[in-house]
Every structure is written in structure tokens, then in C-alpha cells.
Design a protein around this nucleic acid. Structure first.
Lengths: 160, 160
DNA sequence: TAAGATTGAGCTGTCAATCTTA
DNA sequence: TAAGATTGACAGCTCAATCTTA
């Protein structure tokens, strides 16, 4: 590794660790872990996003999603998501239901309590991302970072 | 969040998760976890780095370092490092000794087996970092990333 | 046989409590 | 009292095994 390479690699890793810890601390005040937050916000966003295409979840219902779909989207293993959902279910944040279209499948449903939790946490989290990250960087830096991330991910997904 | 901001934030997080998983998989083949690797390589590097200043560890000896110093450098809590060292000690990778200069303190010593492990793993890990990260990016991108990381870390450390 | 999901064992991390020495 | 470090309880993750349905 050249000196420049080492500088970049170290800075990148240190940024991730420090930023992650800070965001987790702030989020903990709302009663959620980072993992909880990701699950809940993906659960809110994802069914809505392709609602027109899939016509599964009417707007007035609570968001629901097949567990595999959620795991794929999040890049989590089924096992990891299953364990995490079990814990969240105990806390009343989500509920599991059978998929009517495929008896092997299950869907996760956001509960009213889960909706309240994610609604309350979103402001805190977004503001943290903004203050500790977005607002510190120029549009050009953000664009470069996006490009870097997409390049690395594309390369890794190609290999697999 | 604007569309550009969201793109950058998502790409950055996805990159970290994907890259980390890949590097961990490759490293696992050498018998070490990412945490093990960091502990061992910092243990090798750090005493050497300020040897001239501190005159504690003669070159021919196995690297040793005060536990607090190592924890601080890594950005780990004492508890986390203590638990991890206990597990590594059981596997014969490190040894703990009393600090002769302060009876409250302890030092970690790299064992011969630990030295063998880190020596064997370094090639694998470096090559992964190079293939999945460094070689995909231009010098300008790396410089920007270094700048970004340093900016974010500096801001967070100021707050604390 | 494969897909969707869960489970249990065991490792890793956090938090608060504790112990010893400065 | 504070600093250095460890410990125990518990939450989170991975891996392999398992169960049910397609």
C-alpha cells in the first residue's frame, strides 16, 4: 500500500466506525438500534415504492412485505432477519403473518406501535445523518462518494 | 434528503456492508476474524512505530503494548478489548502480562503463534483490499475519500 | 429437490457493576 | 476519587441443521 492508499483506507474505516457509533448512540435515545431502524424504515418504504406494480398493499393498510423480499433488499441473510424479527415481534414492533399466496412464505407487518416508533425515530436519525455527514461535504464530494460506492458494490456483485 | 444525498448515503452504506462481508469471508479462511486481524496487526505495528520515543520494546522481542493504549488507538472500549483478548488468549494468539511500571496496568504480548497467524493472514487481507477496493479507484477518488473521512472524523471528535 | 423460513449452539459486543492500585 | 482492567448478563450475529410446502 502506498502512503496515499493507506491514508484513504484508514480514513474510510475510521469514519465508518466513528459515525456508526455516534448515530447508534443518538438513535438509542428513541429506543431503537440501527438494525431496528433499517428494518422498520425499509418496511415502510418498500411496499409503497412498487405499489403500482404489485398492487398488494392498499395505502390505508399497515405496510407488509414478504420476508425474503425484505432480506434480499437489505442484503441480510434469512437467518439474521428471522432472529431479528423474532426479537422485534416480542417488543410489539412487527407481527408475522402467513402469505396467502404461498404457504411456505410469511409476511412481516408493521404494527401501530412499530409505526409510532419509526415515525418518532426518523427525525432524530435524519438530523444526525445531516449534521454529522451530509452537511460537512460538498456536492462534488458526495457525488464522488456515490460513484465510489457504486463501483465497489458493482465489482463485488459481479464476482458473486 | 435530496436525491443526490440519498444516493451518496445509500451507496456508502451498501459499500461498507458488502466489502466488509467479503473481506471477512476471505480472512476467515486463514482462521482469523476481522477483529482478530485488527488487534494483531495493530499490536505488531504500534510498538514499533514509537519505539524510538518510548524505548520499551527492543526489536528482537515479541511486540507488547499496554492494553489501554491499544484500546485507545483502535477506538475500542476497554471492555470490548478485554473480552476479545480473553478469547484470543484461549486460542494462544496473545498473552497478558503485568505492567512492571504500574500495577494497575497490563500489557498484551504477541505470542509466536500469534505472529505466525498475522504473518500468514496479511497477504490475503492486503490482496483483498487491493482487488476489491484500491485497484477499482483512481488516485483522485482515493484522495477525495481520505478527505471525506478525515472531515467527518474531525467533526465527530470535536463534538466529544 | 429446492425454496421459504425457523431454530439452537456458540461467538461477539454492550452496559453496568466490581476489583485493585495510584 | 480516579484509572486500569475484568466480569456477568444479555442482545446480536453466523453457521449448520431442521421443518414445511412447491
Amino acid at each position: 500500500m502506498s502512503a496515499e492508499e493507506e491514508r484513504a483506507w484508514r480514513a474510510y474505516r475510521r469514519m465508518y466506525a466513528t459515525l456508526e457509533a455516534q448515530l447508534a448512540r443518538e438513535l438509542a435515545a428513541t429506543g431503537l438500534s440501527m438494525a431496528d431502524y433499517t428494518v422498520l424504515s425499509d418496511l415502510v418504504e418498500l411496499p409503497d415504492r412498487d405499489w403500482l406494480r404489485r398492487r398488494q398493499t392498499p395505502k390505508q393498510d399497515l405496510p407488509k412485505l414478504r420476508i425474503t423480499e425484505l432480506a434480499d433488499y437489505m442484503g441480510w441473510s434469512q437467518s439474521r432477519l428471522s432472529h431479528h424479527l423474532a426479537r422485534m415481534e416480542r417488543r410489539g414492533l412487527v407481527r408475522r403473518e402467513k402469505d396467502p399466496t404461498d404457504a411456505r412464505s410469511a409476511v412481516v407487518v408493521l404494527t401501530r406501535e412499530g409505526l409510532r416508533a419509526i415515525t418518532g425515530a426518523t427525525g432524530t436519525h435524519m438530523s444526525g445523518v445531516r449534521r454529522h455527514f451530509l452537511d460537512l461535504l460538498t456536492p462534488r464530494q458526495l457525488a464522488t462518494l456515490a460513484r465510489i460506492g457504486e463501483t465497489v458494490v458493482a465489482h463485488l456483485e459481479e464476482e458473486a
